[in-house]
Amino acid sequence: MADAIEKVSPLHALAEPGRFGDTSGEPGVGLSERLCDSLVQVQAWPDSISALKKAVKSVTGASIKPGNAVATKGDVVLMSTGPGRWLVEDETDDLEVRLRKAIGADIGAVTALTHARTVVSISGERCEWVLASGIALDFSADAFPVGTAKLSHHHEIGLTIHRTGDQAFDLYVVTSMVRSFWGWIARASAEVGYTVS
């Protein structure tokens, strides 16, 4: 029997802590990365949206919010990614099983994406500037308020972007391309100076 198999981040060798880019002033942004313990997509059929919302609530204790508002409760994050479709994140390792139990095929579909995304976080005064330099979204607080999420891309790299604070975003990046993404965001941050933690 094999030893316990651990998760390894695709960024483990890239995201070395330190201070990079322009070092003449205060760093403009800070970058970090993390893996999800559980990230599960749930999607309803058009006639079972409320049943699915109920099921999600029963499993996570959190209520889905309307539109692209992100619901957070404890370690649970609920983000909408399309009509009838949400991403559910928490810090357990059996979220998929629990959701599948609650959401039968008559209600919808449950798909684990825990490994399919790697989360890159960016924070700091210049984070809107850095993100806008590669992603064609309006990052101003009016257009992209704290506590909402949007889907977009950096060229061919798909992104789910959650504004977690005034000057902080979590980006759920497609895992196989997260190294390219890191390469870009590090280059983009170099002009304003950045730290990696």
């Binding site: 058009p46 949206i49 309307p66 539109g67 692209n68 909408s80 009509p83 009838g84 479709r85």
Partner: peptide, 10 residues
């Protein structure tokens, strides 16, 4: 489509 047309995102 119907849900979205009614202005209900979901």
């Amino acid at each position: 489509a119907k849900a979205l047309k009614r202005g209900r995102a979901t």
